[in-house]
Amino acid sequence: MENQVKAKPKQSSSSKSTYLLAYNGISFILWSIVTLRAIVLMPALASHDKLYGLHEALFTFLRATQTLALLEVAHAALGLVRASPVTTAMQVASRLMLVWGVLTPFPEIVMTTNAFGRHQAGTTGGPVALAGCHLAWGITEMIRYGFFVWKEGISDAIPSWLMWLRYNMFFVLYPIGISSECVLMYLALEPAQDMKNGYDWLLKAVLAIYVPGSYILYTHMMAQRRKIMKGKSKAS
């Protein structure tokens, strides 16, 4: 199948398309910076048993970049994109809970906490989970925003390699991201309990809905993939 047969380059764009192109382009650049810098830093940090340094080096930038995704809920609600507002809100909320509700109040979990929740300097359970989030979130978003930049700014005919990445990489990246998020939230239970304000119960409640919530999102992405792949088969 020729993936760019009769491709029509973008010649003009409405204000909506211009805005979406700018938003997706900026988001692609921001996530590329987060991801590529993490990839560069991780080998050096790991070799010195200082993977926890990833938080100090990148967290503020990661948090700001992820928070920008709140606009995507508004995009869906206002009909600027065809995505479901509910599904979009679920995807954005889970990550915002991690960056604002877990990593911001409890940075120690990615610096000195092991995978069993014990505070002990030099362990890597939390830092490894944070690295997993960096890679899973970052690669996912680079592919997704790159896809939309191409579609809004270049041509409606998406290259086959980009289409494949967009609708297949989640099989690997989504489980890595979800498991990393769950580990970080679990590690936050102990320091949250020390606050004695019931915040640990909120985290437990969120963990309890992660399994059904993750299933809903995962099956939603699989349904999208089937729909797109089916369309490609008919077109070929």
Rank of each mutant, 00 (worst) to 15 (best):
M42I: 15
L189V: 10
Y174S: 04
P127A: 06
M163C: 01
S94M: 08
F116A: 12
L165H: 09
F28L: 15
V149Y: 04
T113H: 11
H134A: 15
L51G: 09
L203W: 02
W161M: 07
P43G: 09
Y218C: 07
A115Y: 00
L70Q: 05
K6M: 07
G138L: 02
S14N: 06
I216Q: 08
R82D: 15
L45I: 10
H220V: 09
Y167L: 02
L58H: 05
Q66N: 04
S236V: 08
L184K: 02
G138E: 08
V73Q: 06
E72D: 13
V110G: 06
G146S: 12
L103P: 02
M1F: 02
M42Y: 13
R82N: 11
K234D: 07
I109E: 05
K232R: 13
V149G: 04
A223N: 14
Q193G: 09
S15P: 03
Y186P: 00
G117R: 09
F28I: 08
F59I: 06
A7R: 06
L207T: 03
L207N: 01
F61Y: 14
A131F: 13
S179L: 14
L80Y: 12
M111V: 07
H75A: 06
R118M: 09
R118Q: 11
V110L: 04
L30P: 01
V183E: 05
Y167F: 15
L70M: 12
I26Q: 11
H134G: 10
L184H: 07
Q193F: 07
W150A: 04
G101M: 09
K10G: 00
L184R: 09
F147D: 04
L162I: 11
E141T: 00
Y19M: 13
I143H: 01
M195Y: 05
